[in-house]
Design a protein around this nucleic acid. Structure first.
Lengths: 243, 243
DNA sequence: CGTAGGTTTGACTGATCTCAAGTTTGGTGG
DNA sequence: CCACCAAACTTGAGATCAGTCAAACCTACG
């Protein structure tokens, strides 16, 4: 963890400014926020279903996911998160958590009290617009996931999840989508795609055998990205250029 | 259509005020908006994937749905809409539509130019908060749908869709959840639950045979609501008291 | 009263799950 | 450095839930 090398304000300002242009006064106002930076262990629970959330977390390093649990015990992951993601944007206006948030890897998290962030958005409409837009893009991704889980076959689902992860990683400046390490186990991929871990394994193998991806455990290479996009039915429009 | 009996401003103000308290100045500012009211036919397309949307629509009467289409032609409905719903909240900040919106029944729609609505939210933080909160609740519903489609069996999925529809209807003041008419065909239910129309039909029959619901075509009665909730794994918390 | 869209039912098929058994990998302590 | 262990991954065989195909049957509407 290289906590010390990251200024959470710079990181947050860059993120928000990319979503909706901020002016110098907006930047200054953001810098007055009280930000607490801390690290978290792998699989540490950050938010639990039913919690009253009073802090808005922002992921500086590492990976996390958001999930809900069905009455039969089944877990459904509804999003993966990468550095730069706002983890609790919704708790600005909805105090009770309707889902769980958990780290995947070691992570570094910046937390801001909801009350001060809310005050900031009331005074600085551009900051509100940036955060609002972030939550709208997140909602667009949820819609795509409903489609993915509801109407695509297993192989396409897994491929789509990989494409989205690769594209979001790249957009966040984490490197090329043609080669990357997956932070999550096949069981997490299964819970994100509505499949079983066993079937995810088979679909990954099928994608490898067809030459769409090359793979060695969690190291993934996508030599022919256009072909992978076709196999995944992946059209990045729904990411709205960011996320 | 009783278009003339509804004041779109009253309707919108009541909706937003319930989400986030507005003051008299907010109300006045809303009333300066230029609102265009029009009616639409059943299955009329309101927004198409890829459109640049410059108006924000608000459903005054009738029912609508939002859907995406997979490359294989499969359609996935991602939400149903009832009177009072904001249909294009996201187009305040995302100009290009990432999905389609279509009426189910005859409908009456109030449209407001996005530019003027955006200006209003910049000047009136409480209005922005109300609209933002509406979009956050919608996102919470999308998350629940990912869970529904990803991790529940067919019968539970259908039951959950019915519970959500009944609960939202009631919250919108459209009447008791114990008896109502479904506006949508079984094919639409299928596209919302990730099933086929044939299987939806079988699951509805199964729910009838178990005595969880009573049904005559689209007329649905739920005599024992707690039992139905259990059958559907329905916990309304994710609706955050509104929607 | 004819037609089209929606609903209902049955028989069969197939994608995905379940169960079960290895195998590999990375971490830990001796 | 090696032995061990737990977690993750891999593979196969059989079961099952939901899909497909086919055919009636309503029912609202023109």
């Amino acid at each position: 963890m290289t906590v010390t090398t990251i200024d959470p304000f710079d990181f947050l300002i860059r993120k928000l400014d990319r979503l909706h242009p901020l002016n110098a006064a907006d930047h200054l106002a953001i810098r007055t926020l009280r930000v607490r930076v801390r690290s978290a262990h792998p699989l540490e629970s950050l938010v639990r279903h039913g919690d009253i959330v009073r802090e808005c977390a922002f992921l500086l390093e590492g990976f996390a996911f958001r999930h809900k649990v069905a009455a039969n015990g089944g877990r459904q992951i509804v999003s993966f998160h990468i550095p730069g993601d706002v983890l609790d944007g919704q708790h600005m206006l909805l105090s009770r958590a309707d889902h769980n948030v958990q780290t995947i890897t070691d992570a570094v998290i910046a937390s801001i009290p909801v009350a001060s962030l809310r005050k900031l958005t009331e005074e600085r409409p551009a900051v509100a617009a940036a955060l609002w837009k972030d939550s709208l893009i997140e909602a667009s991704i949820f819609r795509e996931w409903v489609l993915n889980v509801g109407r695509r076959d297993a192989k396409t689902r897994v491929a789509h999840m990989l494409c989205e992860f690769a594209a979001r990683r790249e957009a966040a400046g984490l490197g090329s989508p043609e080669r990357f390490d997956l932070p999550m186990s096949q069981e997490l991929i299964a819970d994100a795609t509505g499949l079983t871990a066993i079937h995810v394994n088979r679909m990954l193998r099928a994608l490898s055998e067809e030459g769409v991806i090359e793979r060695d455990r969690r190291d993934v290479r996508i030599a022919d990205w256009p072909r992978m996009q076709r196999a995944a039915e992946f059209d990045p429009d729904y990411l709205h250029g960011a996320a």
